[in-house]
Structures are given as structure tokens and as C-alpha cells.
Amino acid sequence: MSTRSILEVNHINKRFGGLEILKDISFQVQPGERIGIIGPNGAGKTTFFNLLTGDLTPSQGTITYQGKDVTDEPNYQRTRRGIVRTFQKNNLLDNLTVLDNLLLVLQRKHGLKNTWFRVRNEKNYEALYEEAEELLETWGLYPVSNKIVKNLSYGEQRQIEIMLGIATDPEILLLDEPTAGMSQTETDEIVRLLDDLPKDLTIMIVEHDLDVIFGLAERILVLHEGYIMNDDTPETIRHDARVNDIYMGKKGVS
């Protein structure tokens, strides 16, 4: 392979007390890849994500990002490097406006995070607000810019969640069930927006909706009882007997 892998996971293990959630996980991600991660509930998908983002540290093993060992780096440091996540459950600043949520993401990129003696408004920071408005337009959230997040519908909050992830300027974007609990129309809209993302952006996506996964991903990892059971193309996975056995048969998969 000519390109260097962007993310390398080497023999990762995660234990909580005596319980081993992830067992000896290893794989590599190439720049621009779109990887789907599936597996039944309790397979360790969210734990796995938390290890990549730095919300948890592995019990064993290393994570290398762009040639640098980031295993012990805290989450905010990894975000700055470009490993960005969205959350499975909406995890927004509920009592602030949509615009405020977004500006907090953008202002760091604009190098304003330590500006402490200038009021943040449209007049003082034109470029910042312009970028915010563009993003809000793209995501169809412009009309609700100044609404308090908690007063919005679940679907809208879900959209904000993903928009914030993308606004962070990720090099690798980790989407944790982006369409969970959304209606079909809302799901289609999200899929369309994800499709439109730049092709060089690396994406890893955990999702229960298999249509979404098979539509987006070009490579799929199947997690089962803490192991990577399969690592293959969607086409192969779709016809794999074992996967069908343990995964498709389970409840909760549409």
C-alpha cells in the first residue's frame, strides 16, 4: 500500500474490573477510508470508540495516530489532532443556543480560545460568525440558530450533534450511531449530508441501521464479544453466514 495508515490500533485490551470488554483488537485505517463498525449490543462498540477518542485509556496495547503514539493522550488533545467524535446520546450544551454551541467549536479553530477581554459578537469577530452561518445553512439549522437547544426536536438535536463534529475540522470522524432514534426522512437527510462530506475525510461509523452502514462504508468491522470477528467489504459481510447468525438474528436490528 502506498499511503501510510492514519490510525493504527495494536493489540488493545480493555478491562473493567474483572470484565474484559475488548480483547486484543488490532487494525489499521488508511486515510479517506470509510469504515463501518457493527456488532450486537454489548459487543464493545462504544467502549472501542471511547478508547480511540481518549475518553478511556486501554488496559493494554497502543494507539498510533499519524505515526505518533497517542495511547495516553487525553481526549481534548486528540480532538486537536483531528480525531473527532460525535456522541450516541445527544450530548450538547442544552441551555445554550444552537449558534452558541457551534461558536464554541469554531472559536477554538479561529485561535480565540484564550481571548478573554473582548466581547464575542458579530461585530468583533466577523469571520467567525460567517463560518457559523455557512455551516448552519448547510445543515438546515439556520432558522433555529438562536433557539435554545433543549427546546428543539430530537432529530434537530441529532443534526446539531453531527454538525458540531464536522465543524471541529476532523481528519478522522468517529460517528457513534448518528441516526439513532431518527425518522426515515431524517435518516435520509443525514445520510445525504454524510455522503457530501469531502472524500479525503476518514470516517468510522458505529450504526444499528444496516442500510446506513452498507450505504456509507467501504469496509466493515464486525465486533463480537470483544473481538474483531470480521474485517471485510460490505459485500462479503452481507453474505457471511456467521455474521448473519450472531448478528442479524438478534433483536434490535432493523
Partner: peptide, 18 residues
């Protein structure tokens, strides 16, 4: 505003890179 963000949801602020 970052401080207000921390009051609201510190986890989120961390994952925003703060």
C-alpha cells in the same frame, strides 16, 4: 463562553478540544 460551556457540559467541551 468556554466557562459557560463547562458549566453546561464539561464532557462536550473536552471533546471539542478544550
Amino acid at each position: 463562553r468556554v466557562l459557560v460551556g463547562i458549566k453546561e457540559n464539561e464532557t462536550r467541551l473536552k471533546s471539542m478540544g478544550y
